[in-house]
Design a protein around this nucleic acid. Structure first.
Length: 927
RNA sequence: GCGGUCGUGGCGUAAUUGGUAGCCGCGCUAGACUUAGGAUCUAGUGCCGAGAGGCGUGGGGGUUCGAGUCCCUUCGACCGCACCA
């Protein structure tokens, strides 16, 4: 009987569906384990072999945990809102919902073929109103919350309103957009609109006028993580800085907690470091500088110790201070400069490292020396970081140095012995000089001493600054969650929670309106009419928000929704949340390090503060799978002919390499017939072969259609079976490593599965022996159990596939087809190759499915050796190997080893100084 | 510039965590079988050497009886952040 993978896999997938094998419920009698994949965005191109890599790993881990008796939650869904579907809709007019639905169906079909153990009953799709109801709900909660820095917690805004009416802002420490101070009396006399405007300064979801990344080509604003080097990540269009009123999430309020929380999660150091960089905490001081004409402004510095080296001040061109500090004589020059910087795109600004700037005409007074400091304006100071103004210390900051050199400003050295003739001395080391009370201190001592003095003289205070910005949360696009917001008197109000979801309306076109409003401006009746006594008050029509939410909105709390996906009364019920808690293992790509993984942690912490999530961190352990690159194949066409020459002969001709579809190449050998049919142009192609074959060249490139190197998992499943695909993807190398997909070598893994099959299928019959296994067979099996347990726990799937191969090879040699050993072998293997194993398991007469079975106990007894091989080494160089009984004493081993004729040769009459015996391994003789 | 990860056969990789370097697979070589195949099986395969043996984990140095593993130094690759004050 052949190993008929196609038939087996089809049968078992049907069995799983019929028996709801992987349906999971909250079973409190079992410990829970939550394994999650980053859900995919269903693109039109379908899955390629790179996508399932992480899914296979998580599926293995899920199955392994299930076999260990855990109740495993292993769900899957789709991140269905996003730009590509909308761009496609703009081009074709097809509704993105349809495109998305089709793409999801295709993804689902492909995923099913690979044989994952997902509980599809729990599937979520972010564009489903039943799902985004809870995205909108969370937004409403954020709108109605503020962040208290003292309690380090989000709180309902009603509390704040109460406090304002009693004490104003006195004694409060709140996360805010702008510093504000008012008394209770001042608050109480304000109109509702004025109060609403003030509250906007504190809401966690707020409307704010901020510099945003505006992408004209996409017609929308983008978050910082959606832009790289001035180019949009989606589409690669230029992005410019623009001040706009946008919905924002006060992520920055959580900066400290997001940073500290990293210490309590089991993520890779590099990923944590990426997040730490992104959060960018720096400790320093905020200091006030005054000008003779009464204007004062604040700057942030991490180097308060260099205060005596300040020779000028610099403002960001966008800073509001520019207006106040520019003198009449300088006004024209300043305005010209600002116009010039405004015109430049972010990309141009980054690319151009040349020094530019303009003098404002004003001077600030040095707070210690009283010296006048010229105030300059330059785009090397960023408006968005710190206060948008700096004190320039050209001696010890390379950017200030370049600026000072360019404009001939004085440079003062502050560190004894430093050479600043060519460049600044930026290192935080050395002994201070030219610095009054700091002289003689090391930099390390001088930084806190300087800040102490600043605080003493009331010139400023200690301050922690973060690079992390608030997330810009509106997109001027169609295909996203509508905001549950309507406007009354120009102020935003939330819809009542009971009226959620606010469904995405139909529009005639997916483009901005003629007046430049977002596509939702095209929707008919996009108004909110309040409900009163169950009746819509048609006379009141309030316009609804026209922006939609960004892609990360729907993916921020999906892991919570999987716990309780059909609950219509809560995102997740408290009871269910307390059972599943958070994700034990999360697998996905590093590309989400500064996007989804920050937003999701923020979102969860917010829900935690309000008591909707019972854990501070959403993802306990996180593993990043590597990318699978493409392995392109080439044929070499001799120039101006239709003749192709095999790779090793190509140097003899003048050739053009041409990408050839990897699906018509096997082990780098071209299927000539298929090639002739591939493209009419090649119908009459001639070939110069080597040893009767056309061998293709190859290169590692990104997997993409244009390189003809996309390998579709369906094709592999068709030819080799899902089990081979799963095993091979794991066997390719460590999970975290990026590697090219190379179909060469898949036969080795496929052969292994056939070998396993053949162990129990001799002469076309399933045959299994009832005899007791021998010690040798048990030893082989338990070596495997030990290795597989260790490897899966350590996510070293490639080595455990190797372990299986070794075990099956050994059992083949022993011709072992014992029932007693087969059961355990199959359960060990189940995480990897469920179809083959379930099939064999079934044939054993076991009615249980693999998923009800238990992972076998390791019995160390079977691993015990009778004899051990010792390497006998002299001064660390091993020379020969001797065997000793397992119970041999050290004295015995030493004596025998030294008396061996080979030892005599190496000792050459000398007496050993020392003999070191490493148990079961080595006898090292030190001469 | 700052931070992180890593360098092992022709290739993908492994090494029980400081103890016989190269497991497993691909590829390659030879042989067997055969209805000649992109099939299967057996043996071999780090390098040099006929052999004994020598040399080998990017380079150099160190600690140790013993280093792929630890320390210093240097070269190289990849990733993240970056006019962030």
């Amino acid at each position: 009987m052949e190993y008929n993978f196609g038939e087996i896999e089809k049968r078992w997938q049907q069995y799983w569906v019929d028996h709801q094998t992987y349906k999971v419920t909250e079973d409190t009698s079992k410990p829970k384990f939550y394994v999650l994949d980053m859900f995919p965005y269903p693109s039109g191109a379908g899955l390629h072999v790179g996508h399932p890599l992480g899914y296979i790993a998580s599926d293995i881990y899920s199955r392994y945990k299930r076999l260990q008796g855990f109740n495993v939650l292993h769900p899957m869904g789709f991140d269905a809102y996003g730009l590509p579907a909308e761009q496609y809709a703009i081009q074709t007019g097809q509704h993105p919902a349809i495109t998305t639905k089709n793409n999801i169906a295709r993804y689902r079909e492909q995923l099913d073929k690979i044989g994952f153990s997902y509980d599809w009953n729990r599937e979520v799709q972010t564009c489903d109103p039943d799902y985004y109801k809870w995205t909108q709900w969370a937004f409403i909660k954020m709108f109605h919350s503020y962040y208290c820095n003292q309690a380090q917690q989000a709180r309902p805004i009603e509390e704040l309103i109460e406090v304002f009416s009693k004490q104003g802002t006195a004694g409060l420490d709140l996360a805010q957009t702008e510093p504000m101070h008012f008394t209770a009396d001042e608050w109480n006399v304000k109109s509702e609109k004025e109060q609403q405007e003030i509250l906007m300064n504190y809401r966690i979801a707020y409307l704010g006028d901020t510099m945003v990344n505006w992408c004209p080509a996409l017609g929308t604003v983008l978050a910082n993580d959606e832009v790289s080097e001035g180019i949009s990540i989606r589409g690669g269009y230029p992005v410019e800085q623009k001040k706009m009123r946008q919905w924002c999430l006060r992520v920055s309020a959580y900066a400290e907690r997001l940073l500290n929380g990293l210490d309590n999660v089991d993520w890779t150091e590099s990923l944590k470091e990426t997040q730490r960089n992104w959060i960018g905490r720096s400790v320093g001081a905020e200091m006030t500088f005054n000008t003779p004409n009464g204007v004062s402004f604040d700057i942030f510095t991490t180097r308060a110790d260099t205060i005596f080296g300040v020779t000028f001040m610099v403002l960001a061109p966008e800073s509001e201070l520019v207006e106040q500090l520019t003198t009449d004589e300088q006004r024209t020059e300043v305005e010209t400069y600002i116009q010039k910087t405004k015109k430049r795109t972010e990309r141009e600004r980054i690319a151009d490292k040349s020094v530019s700037g303009v003098f404002s005409g004003s001077y600030a007074t040095h707070p210690f020396t009283g010296e006048p400091l010229p105030i300059w304006i330059s785009d090397y100071v960023l408006a968005g970081y710190g206060t948008g103004a700096i004190m320039a210390v050209p001696g010890h900051d390379s950017r200030d140095y370049a600026f000072a050199r360019h404009f001939n400003l004085p440079i003062i050295p502050l560190i004894e012995g430093c050479d600043i003739s060519e460049e600044s001395f930026d290192a935080k080391e050395g002994i201070m000089m030219n610095s009054d009370f700091l002289n003689g201190m090391s930099v390390e001592e001088a930084i806190p001493a300087a800040i102490d003095e600043v605080e003493k003289r009331k010139l400023g205070f200690r301050k922690v600054n973060f690079r992390l910005r608030d997330a810009i949360f509106s997109r001027q696009r169609y295909w996203g969650e509508p905001f549950p917001i309507y406007y009354k008197d120009g102020m935003p109000y939330t819809l009542p929670e009971s009226e959620l979801p606010l469904e995405l309306p139909e529009v005639d076109k997916y483009l901005p309106t003629e007046s430049g409003e977002p596509p939702l401006g095209r929707a008919k009746n996009w108004f909110y009419t309040p409900l009163s006594c169950g009746k819509r008050q048609e006379e009141k029509r309030y316009p609804l928000e026209l922006s939609t939410m960004p892609g990360f909105a729907g993916s921020s709390a999906y892991y919570l929704r999987y716990m309780d996906p059909r609950n219509n009364d809560a995102l997740v019920s408290t009871e269910v949340n307390e059972y599943w808690r958070n994700v034990d293992l999360y697998i996905g790509g590093t590309e989400h390090a500064t996007g989804h993984l920050i937003y999701s942690r923020f979102w969860n912490k917010f829900l935690f503060d309000l008591g909707f999530s019972c854990e501070q961190e959403p993802f306990k352990k996180l593993v990043n799978q590597g990318m699978i690159q493409g392995r392109s194949n080439f044929v070499y066409r001799i120039k101006e002919t239709n003749t192709f020459v095999s790779v090793n002969l190509k140097d003899q001709y003048d050739v053009t390499p041409i990408h050839v579809d990897v699906n018509i190449v096997h082990n780098d050998i071209l299927d000539i017939e298929a090639f002739r049919n591939w493209n009419p142009e090649y119908k009459t192609a001639e070939f110069i072969l080597e040893e009767g074959k056309y061998i293709c060249g190859w290169a590692v490139e990104k997997m993409s259609k244009s390189m003809y190197n996309v390998v579709n998992p369906d094709v592999i499943v068709e030819n080799y079976g899902a089990d081979t695909l799963r095993l091979y993807e794991m066997f390719l190398g460590p999970l975290e490593l990026s590697k090219p997909w190379d179909t060469n070598g898949i036969d080795g893994v496929h052969r292994f599965l056939r070998k396993l099959w053949n162990l129990f299928h001799a002469n076309g019959q399933f045959s299994v022996s009832d005899e007791n296994p021998t010690k040798e067979e048990l030893k082989s099996l338990h070596k495997l159990i030990k290795k597989v347990t260790f490897d899966i726990e350590n996510f070293s799937f490639n080595t455990s596939v190797s372990a299986f191969m070794i075990c099956v090879n050994e059992l083949s040699q022993l011709k072992c087809n014992k029932k007693a050993i087969l059961g355990d072998l199959l359960i060990c293997l189940a995480p990897f190759a469920p179809h083959v194993t379930e099939e064999l398991w079934h044939k054993l007469g076991n009615e249980e499915t693999i998923c009800d079975a238990k992972f076998p106990e390791l019995i160390e007894e079977y691993l015990k050796e009778d004899v051990f091989s010792y390497a006998i080494s002299f001064n660390g160089k091993s020379r020969f190997v001797l065997e000793f009984a397992a119970d041999a004493s050290n004295e015995e081993i030493e004596k025998t080893a030294l008396e061996h004729p080979n030892s005599q040769k190496w000792l050459d009459g000398k007496t050993p100084k020392k003999v070191i015996i490493v148990p079961k391994k080595i006898v090292n003789v030190v001469i």
